[in-house]
Write a protein that binds this DNA or RNA. Sequence first.
DNA 1: ATTATAAATAGAAATGTTTTCTATTTATAA
DNA 2: TTATAAATAGAAAACATTTCTATTTATAAT
Lengths: 146, 146
Amino acid sequence: MSDNHDLILKNLNLKITPKRLAVLNILADELVFVSPEEIWRKMKSRFKNIGLPTVYRILEELCEGGVISKIIHPTRQLYYYYCKNLNHHHHFICMSCRRVEDVNLCAAKEIEKQVAGNLKGKVLSHIIQVNGFCKTCSQKKAPDES
Amino acid sequence: MSDNHDLILKNLNLKITPKRLAVLNILADELVFVSPEEIWRKMKSRFKNIGLPTVYRILEELCEGGVISKIIHPTRQLYYYYCKNLNHHHHFICMSCRRVEDVNLCAAKEIEKQVAGNLKGKVLSHIIQVNGFCKTCSQKKAPDES
DNA sequence: ATTATAAATAGAAATGTTTTCTATTTATAA
DNA sequence: TTATAAATAGAAAACATTTCTATTTATAAT
Ligand SMILES: [Zn+2]
Ligand SMILES: [Zn+2]
Ligand SMILES: [Zn+2]
Ligand SMILES: [Zn+2]
């Protein structure tokens, strides 16, 4: 797996540093979306000196390179998720436990058609995200508790 | 139009105050999405005393009530847009001039099917937004300039 | 009209996340 | 090894947004 991460960094023309690899490893172990601060806390148990700005920078580089994706959260705080599904798809996120599931649909074609057709505009990107409660959380009475 | 805005506030069980009406009027005159700060600047030319927190609060109330919608911006700053289209739809936003256009498609049905079916989850809300350059801006050589 | 009430607001201050900056360290290629 | 650019730490700044308290205002009931 580590080789895989080396390769990911190589492909992004990023130097293979212990901290970048650690961020990738931490993200790869997570089943849920995480904040820079949370990553930082885990990093601090692995490195004596590790700055929060470094974590922010690494996460942004990985996101920029398409390796991880940003989560759009109602609080507008930053969250990231390392999704191994390389096909174009979107996410269902649980507002209670932060689990992320793939939603294998994409309206890109229809969007492109409408925008190019009616609006004569140019599409740069699109955001599709579904917010809700996952199976586990929706089975609880009060999904935010216990 | 003012009556219309009175009614909007009434329906939300909000008192009809000059400042709430002014925010609605300012938003109604805008063709583009705007920030709280920008609204505040316009408010200051109409009111001697007007606090930025008031603008934030009013915008949030209107958004909460479904009267205006939040724009998801890459910078993650807050932007709002007052859309008169009452049908469920989504937005195409121009990253250059901030114009907003309706995109009359919605994947809600397919989303619901997938999430309820495969994931056994519960959908609370969904975000669909298309980012790009509008007709005018995409016709310019460098869309971000001049 | 007056008054009582809860709601709305101003203004200052706090909050808290994210970014910037500079000196130092490190990965990598020659 | 060494030279070089890239990466990083740590402190500080920036900045948008929120919280707080005292004051004002809209509204409904006299
Ligand atoms: Zn859940
Ligand atoms: Zn898509
Ligand atoms: Zn435009
Ligand atoms: Zn929809």
